[in-house]
């Protein structure tokens, strides 16, 4: 993995990798990917991917309103809120 790839991935994940850490992070992740790459030695042609250990299907919920309005309690957990809204820095809309 190259440093430029780390930058791209960090941007996608909204994480900052400072120039000072870049070498260390790149090296560590490189080692992890090398370990992971052991998988490539195995032929998995025709093997169905397993997303979930459970051999079960999705349960369905009745279309009922079960949740009450808890706005004041929940909004109080937010780092910034006003007039019933969560507040973030101005979003320059597309």
């Amino acid at each position: 993995m190259k440093k430029s790839e780390i930058d791209k991935v960090a941007t996608l994940a909204r994480l900052r990798v400072s120039p000072a850490e870049a070498d260390e992070v790149t090296a560590r992740i490189g080692e992890i990917l090398a370990m992971i790459d052991q998988m490539q030695a195995v032929d998995t042609t025709g093997v169905e991917p397993l997303a979930h250990p459970l051999d079960a299907v999705q349960r369905l919920r009745a279309d009922e309103v079960t949740e009450a309005d808890r706005r004041d309690e929940l909004l109080a957990l937010a780092p910034s809120n006003r007039n019933g809204l969560f507040v973030v820095p101005k979003v320059i809309d597309p």
């Binding site: 991935v9 960090a10 994940a13 992740i29 397993l50």
Partner: peptide
């Protein structure tokens, strides 16, 4: 970072799907 990389375009099959198999 590793997880984001494994799911990103161009790597999904080699990593995520492979791991699921």
């Amino acid at each position: 970072l590793v997880g984001t990389y494994a799911l990103s375009a161009g790597y999904y099959d080699a990593y995520y799907r492979k791991a699921q198999r």
